[in-house]
């Protein structure tokens, strides 16, 4: 398997020890086709609230998320989940929603149930139903997932990621393809999850969304972290030229 950073045959972590926070990254480096996509990035994901990763297209935001989840392995540097290498046993504690949801060719309910690996089938069905209800999709439980509308599909993907009650939820531009109403529904779900104590990392290039949701902002440009600040500070007075240029809608040229 290419890029199998998550060792599939790693020994399962001790029972009950499913903690992944803090997620720490040290000196991450990733090159593809001679281009440095991630350049010496170190960061820590911990605590509560919504951390927003912002930056222009091609800045390396999505790649950074994949590195943090272990879907990609860095050429240099390392990622640790609560001090240990990422492993499959703790995967349910890390939720990830892609820009374009990948739904199984099954019903909406079966998609959510699939993400629940523990417990009896009846138990998993019950929990999946609850997750669907929280996402406002209870009436579509039996519908084939792939004929739902774009907004419903993304809500379903979010419900599926939240069903195992992850410690941290990573979102990769979850509203990029959605109309305003659907985006608002997604944002509501994100706020609900935050209120229940889930740590959230949101990748977006939508300044308005970052303002609405973000507690702190990490600004990335050209594979490097150029600025980290509480949300208020960043939007009122960005410290970096790149950050200021981005907020003002100017083109960034090195």
């Amino acid at each position: 398997m290419r890029d199998a950073a998550m060792p599939l045959d790693a020994p399962p972590a001790a029972r009950g020890d499913r903690r992944v926070l803090p997620i720490t990254a040290h000196g991450l480096m990733l090159e593809r086709a001679g281009r440095r996509i991630i350049d010496n990035v170190s960061l820590t994901v911990d605590g509560h609230g919504i951390s927003v990763i912002m930056g222009p297209n091609g800045a390396g935001k999505s790649v950074l998320l994949r590195l943090l989840t272990g879907l990609l392995s860095p050429d240099a540097g390392m990622v640790r989940w609560a001090g240990r290498r990422a492993d499959r046993a703790r995967a349910p504690s890390v939720g990830l929603v892609f820009q374009k949801p990948v739904l199984l060719r099954r019903s909406a309910l079966a998609n959510v149930r699939y993400a629940l690996r523990a417990g009896s089938r009846a138990e998993r069905t019950r929990r999946a139903g609850e997750a669907l209800a929280r996402a406002g999709l209870a009436h579509l439980a039996k519908s084939p997932a792939r004929i739902l509308s774009g907004g419903e599909q993304q809500r379903l993907a979010l419900a599926r990621a939240l069903a195992p009650e992850p410690e941290v939820l990573l979102l990769d531009e979850p509203c990029a393809n959605l109309d305003p109403a659907a985006a608002a529904a997604i944002e509501t779900l994100i706020r609900d999850a935050r209120a229940r104590g889930t740590k959230i990392v949101l990748v977006t290039h939508d300044v308005a969304q970052a303002k609405r949701l973000g507690d702190d902002i990490t600004f990335i440009h050209d594979g490097r972290i150029v600025e980290r600040a509480p949300a208020g500070g960043f939007f009122d007075n960005p410290a970096s030229n790149a950050g200021r240029a981005y907020l003002e809608g100017r083109l960034l040229i090195d």
Binding site: M1, A4, M6, L8, D9, R66, T69, L71, R88, A89, R90, A91, P92, V94, G95, L96, F98, V102, L104, Y114, A115, R117
Partner: peptide
């Protein structure tokens, strides 16, 4: 499916079955 299943913690045999 690959990334989605891996993020859900599905192993190789589970992936084949899915």
């Amino acid at each position: 499916y690959d990334e989605q299943l891996r993020i859900l913690g599905v192993g190789r045999w589970g992936m084949v079955a899915t």
